[in-house]
Design a protein around this nucleic acid. Structure first.
Lengths: 331, 331
DNA sequence: ACCTCCTGGGAGATCGATTTCCCATACCCT
DNA sequence: AGGGTATGGGAAATCGATCTCCCAGGAGGT
């Protein structure tokens, strides 16, 4: 068997208590010589703390977790990387779980993580309506923070971007470049961020703003939107896509059909994932202040109490201007 | 506080042992009436098993883990999804960790997971040389299987694709289409898969095969390769890219320079990630038999002993033919 | 009527580390 | 020299669930 703390204590000729003080780093006061002896014994035996035992006793694990709807979405990967950097900076570890875009699976993953694997959990809910229950149940056990999206009745704080402000920035940007006939390309939204973007667009433009609504958020749906757009081309000189994959499908379709981007139609996207930059033309998009959001989310998890309040914190978006919106060639 | 097992037992009027038999589902023989009583008591108290305690006692957690070099690589995400499907089919949960392409971070993640969070671990090693030590140490605690790549001296089994066969398939495919002047685009490889692909290419073509070697595996490096290729264009009519991102950078550069793909130069890639399909032209590539590999890896983890043998298992690759290799227009 | 066998279920040990007391020793001061 | 105060370190309780005995009682056989 592997060595236990008793073995280390025995070899060092001290009690389990003293050995624990040295190993766990709570050496409020242990004679330097004993510290040395315990450390040597531990090294000699190749001792490794049994984390299950420690977790049982202390109730903490030293790790955080994050559950995202799907790892196939590069934006969620960026988000994980930001959280991961933050957690690592504190000497911790972040474990990730993929909900496969399915609320049932999401519920199971949340349950598993919250139950003895992590001290706190970040959740990007799959849907506004169906993810709340699992989050609420988990929040009774560990602090939970919703991230990017939020779910109703989850009873926890949510750290998101200000989607209204983002839509306004895009509209102002396009208008500043002389575009007036602006359309929105969005999906029937089950996520809070999608719903907020659509609502913001309606609020700002009312009847003047056209909307192309799709059944899903995929490149394919974006291509479909492209085909529809070509038909209503006379009425549109700019498009706001509510997600990056939609924009990708849309732009490639327009390119092939000979509709010039941005000369005929300006295009903007969300999420600022890496592909947008290498597309032709590179896409103007909204970037989430992920580092600031990650800082805040982790701070809330540490605060614990602060996380147990149903409330949405919104961070200011950034606009990343690239060729697809036609800056530099106003008309 | 939350309810403990002893509370459930008390409310149901049975001993802890009986309650445990019912809850843990080891009811070798408990009277149906008692089962009912315990279950009702548990429901009433909202009882949830303390997984740390269970893990301490039983030494198992019911979850598996996977550590990948980087989630930003879509191929690794596909790989995770295959593993995840497999684990979920058995009613388990898969937790993921991102090593940020850094052996030190990788070592910490492996250590954390193996220590009380998972029953077994899949690792895609960051490097051939530097990842072995951490894997070996972890393998002393839990069964570990290397996946896709392997690291020297790790002392565990590795489940990978047969890279030699893959390179052969590509070369045969290109030759069958009349291409004779084939070049390899690869990076200075620190990963086993990269090294194997380069070696296989040399084995097959010897001096006849040109090689463009780059410092890193990025889209940017691919663009650089494109520029070099344009200079040596007379000597090359087909390119085998050892990674998908290299192919992406290469093709976009060739496109812009007016070099026709596949008419002037045929291009093939690896990993068959989703982007390859939407590129213009869509890219021929090698697809990993991920589902079969995932099945095998999880089976090895269950087998335990089978995983503790240093050995490489290679799975047969599949060739996915698309427009970029010029099939249908042999010359 | 008595013995054996089987089954259900309880008492208590156990997993391994942490942490709360509490005692012993040494030091300091008057 | 005697009493008071730090300070180091040990014994034992504790976290919560599981699992190994082992016993009681009922069924079945002769």
């Amino acid at each position: 068997m592997t060595a236990r703390l008793v073995d280390v204590a025995q070899l060092a000729g001290v009690s389990r208590a003293t050995a624990s003080r040295v190993i766990a780093g709570t050496p409020r006061n242990v004679a330097p010589e004993l510290v040395e002896r315990v450390e040597r014994a531990a090294r000699e035996l190749g001792y490794r703390t049994n984390q299950s035992a420690r977790a049982l006793r202390t109730g903490t694990t030293g790790t955080f977790g994050v559950v995202v709807p799907s790892l196939a979405n590069p934006y969620f990967v960026q988000l994980i990387e930001a959280l991961s950097r933050r957690v690592r900076a504190d000497g911790g570890v972040l474990v990730v779980s993929d909900a496969a875009n399915t609320p049932d699976i999401e519920a199971r993953e949340i349950d598993t993580l919250v139950n003895g694997k992590v001290d706190g959990l970040i959740v990007v809910p799959v849907t506004t309506a169906e993810s709340g229950a699992a989050i609420k149940a988990a929040a009774a056990i560990r602090p939970i923070v919703q991230f990017d999206r939020w779910s109703e009745g989850a009873g926890t704080v949510a750290v998101t971007m200000d989607n209204h402000a983002a839509i306004s920035m895009l509209i102002d940007h396009l208008r500043g470049l002389g575009r007036e006939k602006i359309a929105l390309v969005a999906a029937e939204q089950s996520s809070s961020s999608g719903a907020e973007r659509s609502a913001a667009f309606r609020d700002r433009l009312g009847e003047a703003g056209r909307a192309i609504v799709l059944p899903s958020i995929t490149t394919d749906a974006g291509r479909k939107a492209g085909r529809r757009l070509i038909r209503m081309r006379a009425d549109v000189d700019a498009v706001v896509c509510a997600a990056d994959v939609l924009a990708i499908g849309l732009v490639t379709t327009l390119n092939r059909a000979g509709v010039a981007v941005p000369d005929d139609v300006a295009v903007t996207a969300f999420d600022d994932t890496a592909i947008l930059e290498v597309l032709d033309p590179p896409l103007t998009s909204i970037r989430h202040p992920l580092d600031a959001m990650a800082d805040r989310a982790i701070a809330l998890l540490h605060g614990d109490a602060a996380a147990r309040e149903e409330r949405v914190e919104r961070f200011a978006p950034e606009l990343v201007v690239r060729a697809s919106s036609g800056a530099g060639r106003e008309r």
